[in-house]
Amino acid sequence: MPPRRFLTILLPAFAGALFVAIWIFVRASLSEDFRFLLPAPTEVLAAFRDHGDELWRATLNTASGATLGFLAAVFVSFLLSILLSLSPLVRVTFYPYLMLLQMTPIIVFAPILVLWVGAGLKSVTIITFLICFFPLAVNTTQGLVSTDRNLVELFQLYRATKFQEIRRLRIPAALPYFFTGLRIAATLAPIGALVGDYTAGSSAGDGGGLGFQTIIYSSQAKYPALFATAAVCCALGFIFVAGVLSLSWLFLRKWHDSYDRADT
């Protein structure tokens, strides 16, 4: 056990160091004229120092948009999934429109959204919501209707009410599916917020987020700051996914096979 745990830290650290080494090497092999295209790691670190305040503020803005949109998507998709799971008729009625929602290109929709609710946090939240919604709704619904037939019969036999069946059987049984959707949504939420901010963020009052900052840095040719922005986006994504994975561990580790350990 201990050497294995050690390896799970050591190996990724080694891969990271290798990556930075290649980065430095590639930069060194570029001619002087093109080195601005790939800033050195030290330059990126310096950008963090120089633009720290605005990056921090932008990160908070993007993170709030991502979190709000994500949570709203979880809440609404959960209620909708329960509704969809109640009857196949309801499903066939609404599924095409759910698909349609997923097909709608956000880039096209964003300007309309800005007209409706104005640029800023509201637009970013709605765009994140739209991007997260589909994988959540589809997975949760799938989970709710995939309950083991025998277990459903067991509940019928004990004359469980429809409410008991949903609350005590279908929802717990759907949790693994729900968390699959949640994991996908967690990777999409920061990206969604970023894209939303890029297209519908702007500095309307709240100074904009990371997407807006991206526009500014690229227009000013501040490439190290762009790399720093990308790093922040990655970190944000990691936090989201780590949060969901911990939550999933908390709910499923005791009973679900995906957390099975031989030594229980």
Partner: peptide, 26 residues
């Protein structure tokens, strides 16, 4: 009461909670 071919236990409940299920539903 019915005993199925499979144990048909709820995997997210403990043994005690599984046995308690019919009582809880009532």
């Amino acid at each position: 009461a019915y005993v199925f071919q499979e144990p048909t236990l709820l995997p997210w409940l403990t043994v005690a909670a599984n046995v308690a299920l019919p009582l809880e539903l009532r």
